[in-house]
Design a protein around this nucleic acid. Structure first.
Length: 420
RNA sequence: CGGAGUGUAGCGCAGUCUGGUAGCGCACCUGGUUUGGGACCAGGGGGUCGAAGGUUCGAGUCCUUUCACUCCGACCA
């Protein structure tokens, strides 16, 4: 993409209402835009690209683990919610409305009922199990108090997966597989995180674990052990707990809940009469698990963990572009030609690259560098006066270090850095 | 849902106490000068001052009602 053709409204001023770094920076760098409705944001081009990148990582790892992607309507009939009693239990968080025939509907805040409905209509035998189906789709929760931008919006992108099994043992196997899969996803996204013991809350079920992105601004307090892997949400621990089961002292830290996996059992399948025939020709309710990842919340989490005073610092797999080619003087034909050549060469190698070709008189070199730092792409190649000596400057966003590299070598250098 | 704030140009704000022609910075448009770290000069466009009602010769400003948004708390897969 060329910067001159993209809608990237970066600003110098920080929006008054934003408190968190991720909220401020995503607004300032032009990833998202406030709509005027509480907890509702427009995703501008950069935000949309980043969201798709994170979604892709989630999808790839789930598909590798044998999950099936489907798509459910955002609108579900309230009748499904009444089958499990959650129409009442969820309360005002369900945004309800009626259609022209006076039927009740809700915007989906989660989809246990809808997915059980999908499976009970198609899966009738133990031979079809196990099955893990998921979607990555927009959810709506009429939160009491939306806040912090993408951290707690009313509309948000969530991956919700549901697994169906013939036995508790098999469900526990899948639960472990999902935990391992989530670790791969969070690791690929470059996040520092903890898997913690958690409360199952309104979803119900036996055991659950949360995936916490560690950040001082997190809304959850978690206890972690530095001696072993143990970690738990403070809400599940006895208030007197000060030491880990291994004996070491526990430390309190803050985390952003970006994923949550549950062992559900038959909490939903039993009341909804979602049953299959077992080997003994008897009907049994499916044993279920459910697994969520807040995809749009991850964008906020990545920035909470990776930013500095100049702007965002996206991780390799989350960055909207890996490389920003800054043509210092866009009206200089020789510079623009070198920039274009590098742009095409990197694209040919499959690198996501942005060419800052802006040539208007207000967009000088300083603006381009500031935008690079604010947006937080992984590397910038500055094409400037050095091309007369056959060189360009390579800037690494993470530490803002600069190095002079020969034009002929820079593509290889980038490939090496991105490969590591 | 309790508490505290804020609504004035696309964004950030002043003006409100003490009523009297709607302001500033950024952004935007035109021209010129600049050109490696968010340039400068000159000119220009853009507003039912959140909404409704009231007081007044006159309301952004005073009174009443209402709506929205933000922050703290409670709540929250």
């Amino acid at each position: 993409m060329k910067f001159s053709r993209m809608l990237i409204p970066t600003t110098k001023e920080t929006p008054n209402d934003a408190v968190l770094a991720s909220h401020k920076l995503l607004l300032r760098a032009g990833f998202i835009q406030f709509t005027g409705g509480s907890g509702l944001y427009n995703f501008l081009p950069l935000g949309k690209i980043t969201l798709e990148k994170v979604r892709k990582v989630v999808k790839e790892e789930l598909d590798k683990a044998g999950c099936n992607e489907v798509h459910l309507p955002m609108v579900t009939s309230l009748k499904l919610w009444e089958e499990t009693g959650r129409a009442d239990k969820f309360g005002k968080e369900l945004l309800r409305f009626r259609d022209r025939h006076e039927n009740d509907f809700t915007l989906s805040p989660t989809n246990e009922e809808a997915m059980v409905n999908l499976v009970r209509q198609t899966v009738k035998s133990y031979k079809q199990l196990p099955l893990n189906v998921y979607q990555i789709n927009w959810k709506f929760r009429d939160e009491v108090r939306p806040r912090f931008g993408l951290m707690r919006g009313r509309e948000f992108l969530m991956k919700d997966a549901y697994s169906f099994h013939a036995s508790v043992e098999d469900m526990e196997r899948e639960f472990a597989l999902m935990e391992a899969t989530y670790k791969k996803i969070f690791t690929r996204l470059g996040l520092e995180f903890k898997v913690v013991e958690a409360d199952s809350g309104a979803i119900g079920g036996a055991g659950s674990k949360e995936f916490m992105v560690l950040a001082d601004s997190g809304e959850d307090d978690i206890m972690v052990c530095d001696a072993c892997d143990f970690a738990a949400n403070i809400e599940v621990l006895d208030e007197n707990t000060k030491n880990c089961t291994c004996g070491a002292e526990l430390r309190v830290t803050k985390g952003i809940e970006a994923g949550h996996i549950f062992q559900l059992g038959t909490t939903y399948s039993a009341p909804m009469k979602a049953e299959f025939l077992n080997e003994n020709q008897k009907l049994e309710p499916f044993v279920m698990g459910t697994y969520g990842i807040g995809v749009s919340r991850l964008l906020a989490g990545i920035i909470e963990q990776n930013h500095d005073e100049k702007g965002c610092v996206w991780t390799k797999e989350s960055a909207p572009f890996n490389v920003d080619i800054i043509v210092a003087k866009a009206k200089n034909e020789a510079q623009m030609e070198v920039g274009l050549n590098l742009y095409e060469a990197l694209q040919a190698k499959g690198v996501d690259v942005l060419l800052d070709d802006r040539a208007d008189k207000k967009t000088g070199f300083g603006v381009k560098v500031k935008d690079f730092e604010l947006i937080g792409m992984n590397y910038a190649i500055v094409v400037g006066n050095d091309i007369e000596e056959g060189n360009v400057e390579l800037i690494t966003r993470a530490d803002l270090s600069k190095e002079s590299v020969a034009i002929d070598e820079v593509v290889n250098v980038i490939m090496e850095k991105l490969g590591s």
